Simulated assay, not measured.
Amino acid sequence: MRISVDYSGITDLRDDLAALPRRASNDVRRAVRHASIVGNRIAKDEARAKSGPHGRNYFKRIKVDAPRGSVMGWWSAEYGPTGVPKSEFVGAGFRHGTNTDLDISAARAGEILARDVRKAMDSWFWGAD
């Protein structure tokens, strides 16, 4: 296998490398946003399917926040129930005091995040979009 890189000058390489942090940050933000939206949707669907009469509207409380950047350069987003419902979430995905809706969605959200970041990294170095 042989890889050939053709640059007209070292300045092209320098410019590409200088643009990489900004591009990477935007791509990772997009990946975090996508994963949190998918995780939120799965958690809502699980809550809707599992909730009993006491928690039939619980799924409406599951919201997703926009990704937030930190000073250190990483992105994060959160999703989950908001507010304190009157029923304290009775019959709404809690099994023996533990909410299982978010655990189910976290696995899929993690897969989506990993896939999107790998795809973005390929585009940074190989030009595939």
Rank of each mutant, 00 (worst) to 15 (best):
H54E: 07
A114P: 00
G127L: 02
I62F: 01
H96P: 05
I10E: 02
G127W: 06
P81S: 10
T11C: 06
N57H: 08
M121R: 03
A24M: 05
I104D: 00
N57A: 07
G52R: 04
I37N: 09
L102V: 09
T82L: 11
V117K: 00
P67G: 11
D129C: 00
R30L: 02
G39R: 02
L102G: 05
N57V: 03
Y58I: 10
F94L: 13
I112M: 10
R23P: 02
A92S: 12
T11E: 14
N99M: 06
S87P: 00
K86V: 10
R108H: 14
D15G: 09
D129T: 10
W74P: 01
V71A: 14
Y7W: 15
A107G: 14
I3Y: 02
V84R: 10
A128M: 03
R56S: 03
V90D: 03
S87Q: 08
N99W: 02
P81W: 05
T98P: 04
R29W: 13
D116F: 01
A66M: 13
L102D: 02
V28R: 05
V38Y: 09
R95T: 09
V90A: 10
V64H: 00
N40K: 11
K50D: 09
V90W: 11
H96N: 15
T82D: 07
P85D: 11
A31Y: 01
G55Y: 06
F89C: 07
E78T: 10
K86T: 09
D122H: 02
I62C: 05
V71R: 14
G91R: 06
P81V: 12
F89M: 14
K63T: 13
G97F: 14
F59M: 09
P81E: 06
I37L: 15
Y58P: 03
A24K: 07
A77S: 15
V28Y: 07
A114D: 04
V84W: 14
F59Y: 15
D101R: 11
